[in-house]
Design a binder for these strands. Structure first.
Lengths: 137, 137
DNA sequence: TTAGGTGCAAAGGCTTTGCGCGGCC
DNA sequence: GGCCGCGCAAAGCCTTTGCACCTAA
């Protein structure tokens, strides 16, 4: 266990977001300025293979990472703000398992991403939904 | 509409798999050898923006493409063979819609990928399951 | 001491782009 | 004739890697 790996691990465990390699390097370098980005890349692969972290691809051309927590979860990306919202859903897990069973496969890993925009409170959709519920003002 | 775009469009519409740019270029070049890969890249972006094709990321470092059909479907990738199996599932669509509603978002696009291996008839897993059911031979 | 890690810079893989030429309307 | 697209090669971006030095155990 080298100093560099210690610092990078600490940075990752303290991150609640989904930083890319450059950002992880920036945060690590603020603790120990002599850490190189090559070491960050090497350490990320190490931690990924050890299943300590998960690599994400959020369609912006670079890898992002998050600590591998115990809970199964997926991501909703706000297309206007770039914000990443995590969610989990038992029903979803059951459907995935059912699909895999029907196709005759054991699932090793999977990912689901939703890309969307926040529904506004006075949107047409909501108005229509209120109308359907008969509680239109 | 140039000859190049015609050829590339034809190649895409005749493809039932999920070719990458190099493969699309290869197929196009077999029809018209003077098509350059830059034109393929440019045409793919054009067609993607026009929603004629979908760009896929199957975790192998390069973009793959498929014709944008009407049906919503997702992909199961066989980790041993690389084979890509398409599936669709109404129940899954309902669950996604429910999640989006609960989070207060309108979904613009989404993707789900399952990565797995074929379940073998005599696998350890199945043996263990049989054992649990007390019907081991 | 020594096996393995690190820093630096070069190289790699996929994709984009500047530029001059050429075809289509 | 003008606009748009093409081919070619160079450049870009993220990531990996060869090599010599260094460091943790």
């Amino acid at each position: 266990m080298t100093e560099q790996r210690r610092v990078i691990s600490r940075v990752l465990s303290e991150s609640c977001d989904h930083p890319d390699v450059e950002e992880i390097h920036r945060r690590s370098a603020s603790i120990d300025p002599k850490i190189s980005i090559a070491t960050v890349y090497r350490t990320m692969r190490l931690l990924e293979n050890a299943r300590v972290i998960d690599k994400l691809d959020l369609r912006d051309g670079r890898a992002r990472y998050e600590a591998n927590r115990a809970d199964r979860h997926h991501h909703l990306i706000d297309l206007k703000t770039g914000e990443v919202i995590e969610f989990n859903c038992d029903e979803l897990e059951l459907v995935k398992a059912k699909i895999a069973r029907e196709l005759g496969y054991d699932i090793i890993s999977d990912r689901l991403e939703l890309y969307g925009v926040k529904k506004e409170s006075n949107s047409l959709t909501q108005t229509l939904e209120a109308f359907k519920r008969h509680d239109v003002p």
